[in-house]
Design a protein around this nucleic acid. Structure first.
Lengths: 218, 218, 218, 218
DNA sequence: GATGAATGAGGCTTCATTCAT
DNA sequence: AATGAATGAAGCCTCATTCAT
């Protein structure tokens, strides 16, 4: 991961990937599976090529560098998960659609959970590389803040007015909410074996209960 | 990270490190700083040697392999943080010392926070490598469960009897507590720049408030 | 030289080497010359690469490990010298083709001598590494016994019936014959300078005379 | 093995090794065992030091270089086996002591065999390194020729006069004799497992019979 | 004399990347 | 577009040797 501007790479990348051949598809699928399983640094391009059934040169013909292959894996996911997430939240999750903050929370968590479940491998990659690469963090955190947080920020005020949530500063609220929900997803989809998590619905309710009321006795 | 038993490595390792040269100290310090900054996989032994001002061979004379160097960095931390943590919790944090679960929680978080602050870099390494190496997880999670959780488990019952915490199954309670506290520390010490976190005391109170009461309006 | 089954390596190896680049050829030729001259352990891959005019990486692209390069040198030779030797002996050297055991011996020695002369360097490598690597011996000796000795064993009986050779147990006979012929070849092709051995024909006759009649006065 | 004159090294070496401490003895014993088992090139000085229970520096204090340690192992053996062999042959094996060449041969083989059996490991080292190092050959072969062969040469004439051995040129005779006896010892003491060779006496008689009469039917 | 920490050259190997076909 | 042989920098590690204690 070089220090060049990530957003420039995003733009350049998106221009390149207009049309995808079947070989490109196969390369991407294989790269996703292997990066998720062994991590970016521990996966070699020759392994990917062999597993994808293409020549090593073909990878470089399409993606130029290994880093760019990683971006080609991550960026569509982020494109989907950040701005579309933002729009979805705005469109579907506006307060008038929900009778309570708890309902909003439930819908939000279920929505994101099913999205991540379908993209579990890429989610693993993003989280892992996010920890490893400071520049990635430097780029993505503002992107996230600008797109999502401002909207949530506004809505929190509405729920506060309704009396659904306590009078805690929005900054603190959001930090708590995202830390906890984000880490819940991370534990759920990275550290937990699939067979250990049969009762997602029950867990989501536990999670919501915790977020709403904490552990204390009212 | 081989598939050999980690605990055996721990024992072997601790026996080896009877006395430490000043060069050994320097190697360890440098390795900690670099592993924390760039990650284990992205740090080469020659970089460490150069930064530590020793010959590369010196690293291998003392630690044998790069992996063993990583273990030599991590294990003393884990030795301190897991069983000593367990003992501390048992000795200092037994329910009779605290007027409420909230006080217990406050003491626990402050105690761990100051320990991690003093070992911030190693904490970063452990978290990062924990994500990357499944075997490390396979070894450490039971170690943690056996040493710490059984004790907490017992105490939770006491606090429930006192009426401090809600009647939620202990398994659920602990999962929530550790996910949230663990991820709070991770965000605090890995993702947050030092200058962004001047108000730890305030944050800890926010955290405790959240854990106890959630975000809902009582 | 690992402890894995050599014959498996043979098979795997032969499957790999379908087509050979000119660079591969050059690497093999150079490796043969250098292993023969200085021994396997004293020849570095970087030396081979430099002498062959290729990058060091090229060696590993084709042969994977240094040990596998050694096998790639040795195995085709063994394939030629052991089973083909066996077939040749069976086809061309069956008793009915020879008026006497002495004639048989003369043909056999000349045949093997010209084969080894053409593969002198590889023969040197095999003998040297044979001494150094017990597993190589463990694999090759049975291979040789099964392919060659059983045939010779049978023929010895025929020559005994004809009265060509003395009534010595076949086991003893073969041990003597192979020790002496093998060591003659070893001395001739490893210890002797080329210029010291201008009179091969004469030497072969001396050798045969010795084998047939010993040094005693009849 | 550098290209410096070996005989000079011998002399220098012998001057050094006047008095041997117990540590030196232990180092030599260990080096002999390990060189014989794994070969000179595959044995590291640190292994020797560890197995001998001394510090690695101690080896270099006494022997200067690893090569010199090898010479210190080999040379006393050669000193014993070459000139003493020569003297012994001259003193004990002069023709008047034996009724026949066959008896002489039997005594010679038994004598050398028991010497090598007692020094089996060093013999292995000498043979192996002899194959690997041309300079060693260049030095030792003349040494042997000058000390031993001239005497044997003379005696062969006597046995020929007695009619014990056939009228073959001495050069040819000696080449055959030494090739065969030497290789018999090599096979016997390097390639053969100890348990496979219980019947030395019988084997020696086979060997003598072969040398005297060959395999032919008289 | 003995030690063992330290060295640094060199060994084998991996890998992202290039390029002729 | 696709291939895969070739590259060479860099990685981890070994080892004979030196030297301060």
């Amino acid at each position: 991961m070089s220090s060049t501007n990530l957003l420039d790479n995003i733009i350049a990348q998106l221009k390149l990937s207009k049309k995808e051949t079947s070989k490109q598809q196969k390369i991407l699928e294989t790269a996703i599976a292997m990066f998720a399983e062994k991590g970016y640094a521990n996966t070699s391009t020759s392994e990917i090529a062999k597993a994808a059934g293409v020549a090593e040169g073909t990878i470089f013909r399409h993606y130029g560098t290994k880093e760019n292959l990683l971006l080609s894996v991550i960026l569509p996911f982020l494109k989907e998960s950040v701005p579309v997430f933002a729009r979805e939240v705005i469109d579907e999750f506006s307060p008038q659609n929900f009778s309570s903050f708890e309902d909003f929370l439930r819908a939000l968590i279920r929505n994101r959970m099913s999205f991540i479940r379908e993209n579990r491998e890429i989610f693993q990659i993003v989280i892992k590389e996010f920890l490893y690469h400071e520049e990635l963090r430097r780029e993505l955190i503002p992107l996230f803040k600008n797109n999502v947080l401002s909207f949530i920020n506004k809505n929190l005020d509405l729920y506060k007015q309704r009396g659904d949530i306590a009078d805690i500063p929005n900054g603190t609220l959001m930090k708590m909410l995202f830390t906890f929900i984000g880490s819940y997803f991370s534990v759920r989809f990275i550290l937990t074996d699939e067979e250990d998590s049969l009762n997602d619905e029950g867990e989501i309710e536990d999670l919501i209960r915790f977020i709403m009321k904490g552990v204390g006795n009212e």
